[in-house]
Nucleic acid binder design. Sequence first.
DNA 1: AAAACTCCTTGATGTAGATCAAACAATGAT
DNA 2: ATCATTGTTTGATCTACATCAAGGAGTTTT
Lengths: 244, 244
Amino acid sequence: MMLEEKIRPSCNACPIRHRAVCARCNEDELTMLEGIKSYKSFKAGDPILWRGDSLTYVGSVVEGVATLGKTMEDGRMQMVGLLLPSDFIGRPGRSQIEFDVVAVTDVTLCCFQRKPFEELVTTTPHVAQRLLEMALDELDAARDWMVLLGRKTAREKIATFVEMLVRRQHLAGEQAPLPTLALPLTREEIASFLGLTLETVSRQFGAMKKDGILTFSDRRQFKVIDFDALHLATGDDADGGPLV
Amino acid sequence: MMLEEKIRPSCNACPIRHRAVCARCNEDELTMLEGIKSYKSFKAGDPILWRGDSLTYVGSVVEGVATLGKTMEDGRMQMVGLLLPSDFIGRPGRSQIEFDVVAVTDVTLCCFQRKPFEELVTTTPHVAQRLLEMALDELDAARDWMVLLGRKTAREKIATFVEMLVRRQHLAGEQAPLPTLALPLTREEIASFLGLTLETVSRQFGAMKKDGILTFSDRRQFKVIDFDALHLATGDDADGGPLV
DNA sequence: AAAACTCCTTGATGTAGATCAAACAATGAT
DNA sequence: ATCATTGTTTGATCTACATCAAGGAGTTTT
């Protein structure tokens, strides 16, 4: 909730506070959206959508963390996205979803019925445009992640992942110099995001602790001590392209 | 050219034959598009766009094959997309491109000036909608490729790649049972698409030849002998989700 | 027709990270 | 308090693929 307000101040005026669509909606459109809107909650661990499920809703994360992934027949699993507050779920124009969506913490979604939502997309250029913009952002992020999966070392993967978390959580909070950050995923979940095993993730966290880049107060609570060293360890170039 | 006509018969009536936008354009829109359209050609090996280049055009591949990729500072390279005829290049709403686009064969593009094209997107819901649809398709493909990069073995990667080529080239030609297919990329380029080295690619092709799945007449010309074995080798499930 | 490329294959060796295995928290249940 | 359960660390070993190296097979250049 706070997040959306920070990103798009104009959302304050919008009863829906939905990053995707409210920024330039007029009164009629907002009323219409309000009518097809509902909030849904999921407990940590709950599946939200299963591959092949028919999509009766689209929406976005209001609170909590969910993952987007695919499991192969023999059980190998790859996460393909991390859904944090303000991220969109579902695809207007598609009746089915291709990936599994799972709540990793308690999650609240703000949902719109898909059919009427698609009506809105069809008739309202700025909504379609905003969704296109978001889809292209996600596409860039997915492609950057392909570089990570295909070419980066285990250490570079971990560093990139941590840097992404910092960047995403920084938007929400203020510019405090050394904030303690929450690690919303288990070692196993991180591993399946990075194309590694949980043991390798654990060892790399250990190494970065030893190298004075990170400290852990709790297994799921950490601080970045040396941002420069962290960035250096990502293998990305100086300016640091956008990643998720 | 033939390709677009097969995919969207309605494009026959459209002077532009541009899969992205012409399907439901009216006369005014077509005239407008015609005015900002131009064809551009590139020789095999030519860079088409470099990361960070400002995008003055958007467009799509009419003929030839191009690759989309990113090179890390130390030279490691990952391809993140293969651009075949009808594929779109560039992002309305973005002034810069995040990846390198390179012609691997001689390439012809059909280009539109970005600024006026964006005007059209802003004012014409069905164009924005069509672009959204395409972006979501690409996103699904990118995510499937993330599963490949993160979790598949070398053999599975090669099998998946070959199956994708078959699928893409099948749309163009007719349902001939055993067509000879062109391998548009070198071993090195395939390797950088699959997150492997060229030696591993070569060895895996060798193995699949020995196993009676493929035959090569030339290094760049092959036939699939055993489609079932090929699909089995991909590691994907029976129904075979869409991949590029 | 020889030289110089570029691309590909094949072999020998090395290694990052997987796999196997055991023990150690932290949490929650009885 | 004790016992499960779930997540994490750490160690020993293994292996798929990378890396290093050399030679072959087509092209293009001279």
